[in-house]
């Protein structure tokens, strides 16, 4: 799980291009959208695509997205649950 969170923070900084933000600046319970990170709906589009690219997990609609995209913790939980569900194996994270 920690690896997933670490990777998500790297994606947010590098792929969503947040200059001057370090990994340690992003807390696990930071609100992703509409919060101090300054991410908006267009970043949400990018993040959905990147989550699919790096983790192979698809966020299908707002029913899933609203909770999953709330914080790093919630997104990591979502990804972990999906990866576990798809492989049927316990994932060490």
């Amino acid at each position: 799980m920690q690896e997933i969170k670490q990777k998500l923070k790297e994606i947010i900084i590098n792929d969503l291009k947040l200059p001057g933000v370090k990994l340690e600046d992003i807390k696990d319970d930071s609100i992703l959208f509409g919060g101090e990170l300054g991410l908006d709906s267009l970043d949400a589009v990018e993040l959905v695509v990147l989550v699919k690219k790096y983790f192979g997990v698809q966020i299908k609609d707002m029913d899933e997205g609203k909770e999953a995209l709330r914080t790093i913790n919630s997104l990591a939980d979502f990804i972990h649950a999906r990866m576990k569900g798809e492989t049927g194996e316990q994932i060490d994270a």
């Binding site: 709906s41 267009l42 959905v48 698809q58 966020i59 299908k60 609609d61 707002m62 609203k66 995209l69």
Partner: peptide, 10 residues
């Protein structure tokens, strides 16, 4: 919230 972007990209 998020302007329908998730549904659009999906």
């Amino acid at each position: 919230y998020l302007g329908g972007m998730i549904e659009s990209i999906t």
